[in-house]
């Protein structure tokens, strides 16, 4: 069942001549952990925010089931500072989800920080705290724009595996510049290219591994090579 589809999207920023998208087409068919990959400044965030209905003013259409809830989160988000992050997250979820919150807190290695205020956390902890509160919301698709930036590689891998296990029926679109990570963990890899290169998007298959320890390195390298060629 199609999750989301972008059809002939063209867009340029208002009052500028900067063309961001030119007849862009892409789609995500299944639930799972997918990636949006590409060099900086090509419009990954813009496309992601369009998918989450946060940006309009483009031509073409973005199709998704209207009942599906798409959330977009990015690594610059902050939690309010007037209470501990545990209390802030609890205040934005139903009481019945407190147990899920504990589970995610443990899986993300955040238990020791839950009584701290947001500004006291490291950048990586801030991003994990923000991601936890999004994961506790009602969503069908979560777009994670550099949401694991500043988190060490091992913890990042563990978190992605946790997401793939606990939220197997949900759709994730992960924006990252880490090619190895994208090649290893993601299912579909949407590679965004300059609007001068048509088609502007190429979709590749990632290795979609479920175990961070056991995977075929040659296969991952092959995927990385395909990403390099595509981008």
């Amino acid at each position: 069942m199609m999750q989301i589809e972008c059809q002939n999207i063209s867009f340029q920023y208002p009052h500028t001549d900067i063309r961001v998208f030119q007849q862009l087409n892409c789609r995500i068919d299944d639930a799972g952990f997918h990636a949006l990959f590409g060099p900086s400044g090509l419009g990954k965030t813009t496309l992601a925010r369009m998918m989450a209905h946060e940006i309009g003013g483009y031509s073409g259409q973005i199709l998704s089931d209207s009942s599906k809830k798409i959330l977009y989160t990015h690594n610059m988000e902050r939690l309010p500072g007037w209470a501990s992050i545990g209390d802030i997250i609890l205040s934005s979820i139903p009481v019945s989800d407190a147990e899920r919150m504990q589970m995610l807190t443990d899986a993300f290695g955040m238990r020791p920080c839950m009584n701290a205020r947001f500004r006291r956390l490291s950048l990586g902890q801030k991003n994990r705290a923000n991601l936890i509160r999004y994961l506790l919301q009602d969503f069908d698709m979560l777009i994670m724009d550099e949401s694991l930036a500043n988190v060490d590689e091992t913890t990042r891998g563990r978190i992605i595996i946790t997401l793939k296990t606990l939220f197997a029926e949900k759709t994730f679109l992960y924006i990252s510049h880490n090619m190895l990570e994208v090649a290893r963990f993601c299912k579909d890899i949407i590679v965004l290219r300059s609007p001068d290169r048509l088609p502007q998007v190429q979709t590749l298959q990632g290795q979609d591994i479920m175990d961070a320890e056991s995977f075929s390195m040659p296969a991952v390298e092959q995927t990385m090579l395909e990403i390099v060629h595509a981008s």
Partner: peptide
């Protein structure tokens, strides 16, 4: 934006929360 985005995106924003965030 960096604080309000979550509440806007999840439909939890109300004027009291918005004022609290901005005043804080």
């Amino acid at each position: 934006d960096s604080v309000e985005h979550f509440y806007e995106a999840t439909g939890r924003m109300n004027w009291r929360l918005q004022m609290r965030i901005r005043a804080y």
